[in-house]
Design a binder for these strands. Structure first.
Lengths: 179, 179
DNA sequence: CGTTTATTTCGGTAAAATCCGAAATATCCG
DNA sequence: CGGATATTTCGGATTTTACCGAAATAAACG
């Protein structure tokens, strides 16, 4: 793994760029990408060398990825160092990222909307139009929230298969919608 | 609209913060939030005053929002200035944001994966393990891509209703999955 | 046209995020 | 405990991004 082929470099660099629009910082995303391609778990030191990053940067990045829950620490007998490996099942990873996004994007907004709609601070009277818009958005977020929850509790295999046959999704949805 | 109530301020500030994790910059997100709450379309000048932003910043922000397609320009008879209003239907907006995310996050990755898997640059031999991982990810992104497309072509009313009854989604999915 | 008004572009500054290297801390072993 | 190795924390430097104000451009009007 010390040597990166051009294809691997492409992949890692691209992933780094993508990470930015995903709210993961570039180096963390690169680390993730490399672990994803690596057949074996890697030590922080190895990651440093391969990606030419400072040891501290790698430490921070790994920490962030652990926070996302998309990598794991492994321990090897007779080796004091931590070994890191990426989550193998990409679908499981997808689910984790969804949940994390919900936690970061949906939950705080939901809280804020609920607070402001139900009990406007300082007992001010709420402009009817504003209230209407807030309620509409609240309703929307409640629904999204419920959707997320559905996904959470769905077994991986279920939504995997369901999503795979996306071709028929429209039809199914239409049927449901007629209800 | 010149005066912002505390609730409005909360909403706008929160939206600004959220924008950051959404890849929209803070001021643009704030502008959007204000337009969302505004019963009437607003001019750039009014936005400046209400949010205490520089005219140029507002111009840039509006441009960005136009790029996302979540606001519109209106013209008023006898007024040379552009008036801006937010998209009213939050569901339609949701769809637009989905599409935009796909364009920014999914499409480039898909392109990159296809290129690297099918024709590794310079005719290098591809490590079998790496190829396997790339293929797995490619397959995943193809499916997500197909899913997005399904949503795109679905009439707003359809997915609105479908999503609304999320409670039953698990069951439906399970049924589909058994197929 | 020239003038006024609206909008965008642009250079520079301010703020924020990223990353490094050194120091501190923690962990393990003899 | 003392020394060696692993990991984290921290201050500062670098890079990136956001924002402002001035200047340039565009559009409308008389």
């Amino acid at each position: 793994m010390a040597e990166l082929t051009p294809v691997m470099k492409n992949f890692i660099l691209h992933w780094g760029e993508m990470g930015s629009s995903w709210g993961i910082n570039r180096t963390a995303a690169q680390i993730y990408a490399m672990l994803y391609l690596s057949p074996e778990a890697m030590t922080a030191e190895e990651i440093c060398e391969t990606l030419s990053l400072a040891r501290s940067t790698v430490s921070t990045g790994l920490h962030e990825l652990l926070g996302w829950g998309v990598i794991r620490i492994l321990h090897v007998l007779g080796d004091r160092r931590d070994h890191y490996e990426s989550m193998h099942d990409i679908w499981e990873m997808f689910r984790i990222i969804l949940e994390e996004r919900k936690r970061r994007e949906v939950d705080p907004t939901l809280t804020m909307l609920r607070e402001n709609v139900s009990e406007p601070s300082g007992r001010e009277e709420l402009d009817p139009y504003v209230e209407e818009r807030l309620l509409e958005m609240l309703e929307f977020f409640e629904i999204i929230n419920a959707l997320y929850k559905q996904f959470e509790q769905m077994p991986t295999e279920t939504y995997k298969k369901a999503v795979r046959m996306g071709d028929n999704l429209t039809k199914v949805m239409s049927l449901i919608a007629q209800n």
